[in-house]
């Protein structure tokens, strides 16, 4: 069963792409409209119903992203389709539609959802449509410790229409540590019959000031489940020490003390004498003694 659905899903995408290219080729000869490559992806973070991301690229412009055009999103049922919203594409050519509680989504008996995004085209570009078919699954993260070894467990469950939870076997799950700039991959594993993938936590991984680390588990580009992401925080990292380094060094704001003292001593020694001499000059000015002969002075 699952094979068939997967196969079907892939077929839909391929067919839609071929369809677009075919149309594009015919049209291009007449009006020289540019072909649009459309790709729809499904993402689901923790506690989220999911979001649809459609990326539009212009084939003739070396796959440059198409910015600022409207993409319409639909949920496809057996006989009809429901319009969600029209979203404008951003700089990367992506239109992002976030599914929420109020979104009316068609689901079939197994809980499968089909989404469609449509770009209608204009004078310059051809239209493009793409579909995706996904199953609702939950990816959850938990942590446990056996002896001294720390483990991360990622659990994948399908959620059927009747709210039945079915563990998923054989799905690749990737585990990352969240960094400032990127995710650091620390392993990937397939889920077992319980729907669980177990990872050993690497030793000596630094955390933040409290040793806290953000662990991210992901299912990436799965044919049936799309992209799933789930995060968890755990204080397994080595806490980093934030000692505010206050030095008096050559490179710091404040100078080394010996330098300050030396400077003060040197400058004050000189300037003291300057002031002493100014005092002397004042004394000379105030000295009103009658003039004794110069010669007498010398002798």
């Amino acid at each position: 069963m699952s094979f068939r659905i997967r196969y079907g899903n892939r077929c839909i995408i391929w067919i839609s792409l071929i369809f677009i290219f075919a149309i594009g080729d015919i049209d291009a000869q007449n009006t020289k409209k540019k072909t649009i490559r459309s790709k729809i992806e499904y993402f689901k973070d923790q506690d989220q119903i999911g979001r649809l991301v459609t990326t539009l690229k212009v084939k003739e412009d070396r796959n440059a992203p198409l910015e600022g055009v409207l993409v319409h999103f639909y949920s496809i049922g057996d006989t009809s389709k429901i319009f969600f919203d029209s979203i404008s594409t951003n700089k990367e050519g992506q239109a992002i539609f976030v599914l929420n509680e109020s979104s009316n989504i068609y689901k079939d008996s197994l809980g499968l959802m089909t989404f469609e995004s449509e770009y209608l085209g204009n004078q310059e570009y051809l239209s493009a449509t793409s579909n995706i078919r996904v199953q609702t699954v939950e990816l959850s993260l938990s942590f446990f410790q056996k002896d001294t070894v720390k483990y991360i467990s990622a659990e994948v469950n399908e959620i059927r229409l009747d709210d039945a939870i079915v563990p998923v076997n054989g799905v690749d799950v990737f585990i990352y540590i969240q960094g400032t700039f990127s995710l650091l991959n620390i392993g990937d594993a397939e889920t077992n019959h319980e729907g669980k993938a177990i990872f050993e936590f690497p030793v000596e991984m630094p955390g933040d000031t409290n040793g806290l680390l953000t662990i991210v588990s992901k299912i990436e580009d799965h044919d049936l489940y799309g992209n799933l992401e789930s995060k968890g925080k755990i204080n397994w990292g080595k806490p980093i020490l934030l000692t505010p380094e206050k030095h008096r060094g050559l490179g710091d704001t404040d100078a080394p003390l010996w330098m300050v003292y030396t400077l003060i001593v040197l400058l004050s020694a000189v300037w003291f004498h300057y002031f002493y001499i100014i005092l002397m000059i004042i004394k000379i000015k105030l000295s009103r003694t009658k003039i004794p002969p110069v010669q007498e002075l010398i002798l």
Binding site: K285, R288, T289, I291, P292, L297
Partner: peptide, 10 residues
């Protein structure tokens, strides 16, 4: 500065 060459000033 009122210098007149008296011994004190010198």
């Amino acid at each position: 500065v009122n210098f007149n060459g008296n011994s004190e000033q010198n």
